[in-house]
């Protein structure tokens, strides 16, 4: 099993006709993902390499039965795209786009939560989600992940996620699902949402968590792990030596007022029984030990 998406998931791509959307949409289809439709009101009736394009998400859903949407719309249009997907009744909206204004994110997160509680948002500014061997929705290179299990991965960083997938593959360890939640201030899906799903997934036996400085999401995850999780967890936090007050690339990655430091996050996770590595390789090695002991 996998969490959130699998081989039966039908996906519609908002922005499939754009350069990014068509590149990754077709790549995801090559991987085996059921890419059933694209959306572009100006190009309805056309197709992208055989994938039909509809005017709206609702029409795409009606015609294809898609339940997941993947958003490759430029930042100014993301708010409207997410709300359209939620209104059309998508179960999951994966937002790859980076550079979305924080006020837009705060608005559509709360709007969707209240008016469309059946819709989960993943991202924005995330690499997407991959259930290796089953479905790959987003920009992760599918070939760096080994299908199967027993490990689930949840990460706030793109390249470090790839690093984690690859290190586990080199060790011969498979992954059930790898979720990139993204580094923005208002992520639609949190660490806790993923940990909860992994805890409930019978095929996931252990979880790897990759966090970074800023905010308190890792501390909240630690509390959840401590009180609600039975499965073992390994973790890595990037930004141990980041200077306070300087944004390190991600909008969320900043240490301010002494809050959000890597040290505090690592301590909270260690206290929750998580095996915390000092670098991505070490976190991978810790996971190898965990898997051997399962």
């Amino acid at each position: 099993m996998a969490i959130f998406v699998d081989e039966n998931t039908k996906v519609v791509y908002q922005g499939l006709t754009g350069s990014q959307g068509s590149f990754y949409g077709l790549r995801n289809r090559d991987y085996g993902t059921q890419v059933v439709a694209g959306v572009n009101p100006k190009k309805a009736g056309t197709d992208v390499d055989g994938i039909p394009v509809y005017a709206t998400v609702a029409e795409a859903k009606e015609a294809t039965g898609a339940t997941v949407s993947c958003v490759f719309i430029p930042a100014p249009g993301v708010k409207a795209a997410v709300l359209e997907a939620a209104e059309a009744g998508m179960d999951l909206v994966v937002v790859i786009t980076e550079g979305v204004p924080a006020q837009d994110e705060a608005y559509f997160f709360n709007k969707v939560k209240r008016d469309f509680p059946g819709t989960r948002i993943l991202g924005p500014n995330c690499p997407g989600i991959i259930s290796p061997g089953k479905a790959n929705i987003g920009i992760t290179a599918g070939e760096i992940a080994l299908p199967g299990g027993p490990v689930g991965i949840v990460s706030r960083s793109g390249t470090l996620t790839y690093q984690a997938l690859y290190e586990l593959k080199l060790q011969g360890i498979g992954v059930t699902t790898c979720v990139g939640i993204g580094g923005d201030p208002v992520p639609g899906t949190s660490f806790i949402d993923c940990l909860e799903a992994f805890e409930a997934d019978p095929d996931t036996k252990a979880v790897m968590l990759i966090g970074e400085i800023g905010g308190s999401a890792e501390e909240e995850a630690a509390e959840f792990i401590k009180t609600k999780m039975t499965k073992p967890v390994s973790a890595y936090i990037a930004g141990v030596t980041a200077p306070p007050g300087k944004k390190m690339g991600h909008a969320g990655a900043i240490v301010s007022g002494g809050k959000g430091t890597a040290a505090a996050k690592m301590e909270a996770l260690t206290d929750a029984g998580v095996k915390v590595g000092n670098n991505p390789t070490e976190a991978g090695e810790l996971m190898v030990e965990i898997v051997k002991g399962l």
């Binding site: 960083s157 390249t159 990037a238 690339g249």
Partner: peptide, 14 residues
């Protein structure tokens, strides 16, 4: 990638 860049800064320090 921002995460890998941060991680690289960390490992140089380490």
């Amino acid at each position: 990638g921002a995460g890998l860049a941060m991680s690289t800064v960390d490992i140089v320090n380490q």
